[in-house]
Amino acid sequence: MPRFALKIEYDGRPFAGWQAQADQPSVQQAVEEALARLDPGFANGARIAAAGRTDAGVHATGQVAHADLQRDWDGFRLSEALNFHLKPAPVAILQAAPVADDFHARFSALERRYLFRLVARRAPLTHGRGRVWQVQNPLDARKMRAAAAFLIGQHDFTTFRSSICQAKSPVKTLDEITIEEIAIPHGREYRFSLRARSFLHNQVRSIVGTLERVGAGGWQPERVREALQACDRAACGPVCPPQGLYLTGVGYPEDPFTE
């Protein structure tokens, strides 16, 4: 059975998350239903596997999944056919590529990259509504960068872990956090980019929510170090809402989508 990697983009607003659920719409369900129109295996209940299970309201510009099909396809024709059957759902297959039988979208991944978009402006959002987190007052990006530096490297991230997280260990290595500040009409946008091999449940949203408290002046940067060292969920700042979060990419030993 030929295996294909799928690079997937989606607007998470209409979905209860990536993972298929019995009574709520999911991105996984949308893709599998499109595959069922093309492949008898999926018509009979075959499943796809993804690099990460994004939560309700979270978006993606570079999610990766793999699917085992019963017939071979040209990658371009497969993506075109899937996009036709995905309409009108806000889900797009950016690329489909054949991969080796031992490729696994989740277990072969070496890193995952997330972006969180935060907009500070007084007027309500119109075009960005549901795609960014909005606060009213500008933030101090310099202080947020100083606080973020305490989180780089290998740490016990219990403080920044959801109470329902199913990971076996709270120890993770955070390879990078960058914070970009962009002037926009009547406000500022702050883009938090995070990179790691894997993340705990709600880790990114917990980190960004805590850094926002630093940027707003409620916390000093050193308090983030103290919160991390506490290894206590109660020491975390607020968990920010999901709509500003994007899974932007997944890294593998060899890029399956290289032309």
Rank of each mutant, 00 (worst) to 15 (best):
M1I: 09
P2D: 02
R3V: 00
F4I: 00
A5R: 02
L6D: 02
K7E: 02
K7M: 01
E9N: 11
Y10R: 01
D11V: 05
D11W: 06
P14T: 08
G17S: 04
G17N: 03
W18A: 04
Q19C: 05
Q21V: 12
Q21R: 13
D23L: 12
D23T: 15
Q24Y: 12
P25M: 06
Q29M: 06
A30I: 13
E33H: 08
D39V: 03
D39I: 01
F42W: 01
N44S: 09
R47I: 00
I48E: 00
A49L: 01
A49M: 02
A51C: 01
G52N: 03
T54D: 04
Q63Y: 01
V64K: 00
V64S: 02
A65Q: 05
A65G: 09
L69R: 12
Q70A: 14
R71P: 02
D72H: 10
D72M: 06
W73S: 07
L78T: 10
S79W: 05
S79H: 10
A81I: 02
F84L: 14
F84E: 14
K87L: 15
P90L: 11
P90C: 08
I93A: 03
A96W: 03
A96H: 06
A97W: 06
P98W: 09
D101V: 01
F103A: 02
F103V: 04
R106D: 00
A109T: 09
A109K: 10
E111M: 01
Y114M: 03
L115C: 11
V119L: 14
R121K: 14
R122M: 11
A123I: 12
L125G: 14
G128N: 13
V132H: 15
V132N: 10
V132R: 11
V132T: 10
W133Y: 15
Q134F: 10
V135L: 11
P138Q: 04
L139Y: 09
L139Q: 09
D140I: 11
D140E: 13
A141H: 11
R142Y: 12
M144R: 08
R145Y: 08
R145D: 09
F150L: 09
G153Y: 14
G153R: 11
F157V: 02
S162G: 13
C165Y: 09
C165P: 13
Q166D: 03
K168S: 14
P170A: 01
V171D: 15
E176M: 13
E176Y: 13
I177Q: 01
I177W: 00
T178W: 04
I179S: 04
I179M: 01
E181F: 09
I182R: 15
I184P: 06
H186D: 15
E189M: 14
R191H: 12
S193T: 08
S193D: 06
S193F: 11
S193Y: 12
L194W: 10
R197T: 14
L200V: 05
H201G: 07
V204D: 10
V204G: 11
S206H: 14
T210L: 06
G217R: 00
Q220I: 10
R223K: 14
A227T: 03
L228I: 04
L228C: 04
C231D: 08
A235R: 08
C236Q: 11
P242M: 07
Q243L: 12
Q243N: 15
G244D: 11
G244L: 09
L245K: 12
L245C: 13
Y246L: 07
V250K: 00
Y252E: 00
T258A: 15
